[in-house]
Design a protein around this nucleic acid. Structure first.
Length: 417
RNA sequence: CGGGGAUUGGCGCAGUUGGCUAGCGCGCCGCGUUUGGGACGCGGAGGUCGGAGGUUCGAGUCCUCUAUCCCCGACCA
């Protein structure tokens, strides 16, 4: 992408009504726009980051047998009444709306009920199981108070997968596979080394535990107790002597840490399938309950976390796997020969499959350097009168101060994806 | 949902005890000088002060209501 064609621009100031560091940086860099509290739009660079995270999640879900679907956002209240989750006294962050006729509808905040109900026509035999549908979709939750920028919004992008298994053993096996897939996602996003599987309350769904994935970060809202040796953590909400004993953890081995919840997986047993009438016949012709699980990853929350966690005083610092581009190509001096060589280098890198932001604007060099840093692009290449005279370009990584001179023919070898 | 603060061009802000055509910086447009870390000069465009009602000769400034945003708390599948 040529920056002369990008309509967004960076800003020196941030909106006074945006206190969250991740949103401040992303707004400053022109990646997102705040529509209202807890609601953000994504401009081209922000959309690219979101897409990159989404694609990593998609690949790992596909790898464990997930089948991508798209559920409706508008939902009939009847199925939620069957599981007693329609009443605001039970689930208090619904967005609800009405048809012209006056009939009430829900705006999707999660999809256990509709996905379960929608499988009824297809699941009737043990031969039809297991099933692992998932989707990546905008969710709506009417939080009383939105905050933390992209990390807790009223509208946010989420991956939700649901597992339907014939028995507990089949479920347990998939559940563990899903947990491993989650860790692969975090590894690829560059946060794997400080993200921990964490025991948490099963919440509204069950009386048992659920598993959270918590990324250690000072910006987190959650407190966890971590056994660094065993690499197991416990959420503060269930940090009690009886539970530690049950999990085989010793209080003296645990350290208190601040963390961001980047995923949550729930064993749901048969609650929703039973209540909604999803079941199957086994080999003997006996009616059996389906065992369900749900698996969420907040895509937009991950973007906020990564933006804020890695940022430095100059701006964003994206890991290569999610950066909106791999290379920020700066052209200094606008003599014909420089322009020609820079254009040529841009074409060449694009042809080789590198994602390049080409700063071809007629502005001062300092602004280009500042923008390259603020946008957090992993590699910066500078081509100028000086470099062309020597037949080289300058290459610098966002995370380092070292500036290397690189021969034209060697550039692509120097770029690690 | 309880308590507190705020709302003035695209963004950040100022605006005395109410008083003339509402200012400043950034950004934007034009011209010129500049040109390797967000340059400088000159000239411009752009706001009716969140909304409604009221007090007053006169309201951005005072009063009432309301909306939104932010903070603290509660809540958070």
């Amino acid at each position: 992408m040529k920056l002369s064609e990008l309509y967004t621009k960076t800003s020196k100031t941030v909106p006074a009504d945006e206190p969250s560091r991740n949103a401040q940086l992303l707004i400053k860099a022109g990646f997102i726009h705040k529509e209202m509290a807890g609601v953000y739009s994504y401009h081209p660079l922000g959309k690219r980051v979101l897409d990159n995270i989404e694609q990593i999640v998609r690949e790992e879900m596909n790898a464990i047998g997930g089948l991508e679907i798209r559920m409706s956002v508008l939902q009939p209240k009847e199925i939620w009444e069957k599981t007693n989750r329609w009443d605001d006294a039970v689930v208090d962050n619904w967005f609800k709306t009405r048809l012209k006729s006056g009939h009430e509808l829900g705006v999707g905040l999660t999809h256990e009920e509709p996905i379960t109900a929608s499988l009824i026509p297809f699941i009737s035999s043990y031969k039809d199981l297991p099933a692992f549908p998932y989707q990546i979709q905008t969710k709506f939750r009417n939080e009383l108070r939105a905050r933390s920028g992209l990390m807790r919004g009223r509208e946010f992008l989420m991956k939700d997968l649901y597992s339907f298994c014939r028995d507990q053993a089949q479920h347990d096996s998939f559940y563990e596979k899903a947990a491993e897939a989650y860790m692969k996602v975090y590894q690829r996003l560059g946060i794997g080394d400080f993200t921990y599987r964490t025991y948490a309350d099963g919440g509204y769904f069950t009386q048992k535990f659920s598993d959270e994935f918590q990324t250690l970060s000072e910006i987190g809202e959650d407190i966890i107790y971590l056994d660094e040796h065993k690499k197991i953590a416990v959420n503060k909400e269930i940090y009690r002597p009886d539970i530690l004993q049950k999990l085989g953890l010793k209080k003296e081995d645990l350290v208190e840490k601040r963390a961001v919840e980047v995923g949550n997986i729930f064993p749901l047993e048969s609650k929703y399938p039973d209540e909604l009438g999803l079941n199957y016949l086994d080999e003997q012709g006996n009616k059996q309950s389906v065992v369900m699980g749900s698996y969420g990853i907040g895509i937009s929350r991950l973007m906020g976390l990564i933006a804020e966690h890695f940022a430095d005083s100059k701006g964003l610092v994206w890991p290569k796997s999610v950066a909106p581009a791999l290379v920020y190509l700066i052209r200094i001096d606008d003599e014909d020969e420089i322009v020609k060589q820079a254009d040529e280098l841009y074409r060449q890198l694009k042809n080789e499959g590198f994602d390049v932001l080409y700063d071809d604007r007629n502005i001062r060099a300092g602004e280009k350097f500042a923008d390259a840093d603020l946008m957090g692009i992993p590699y910066r290449i500078v081509i100028s009168k000086n470099t062309v005279a020597q037949g080289v370009v300058e290459l610098k990584e966002r995370t380092s101060d070292e500036v290397k001179s690189v021969q034209f023919t060697d550039i692509s070898n120097q770029l690690a994806r």
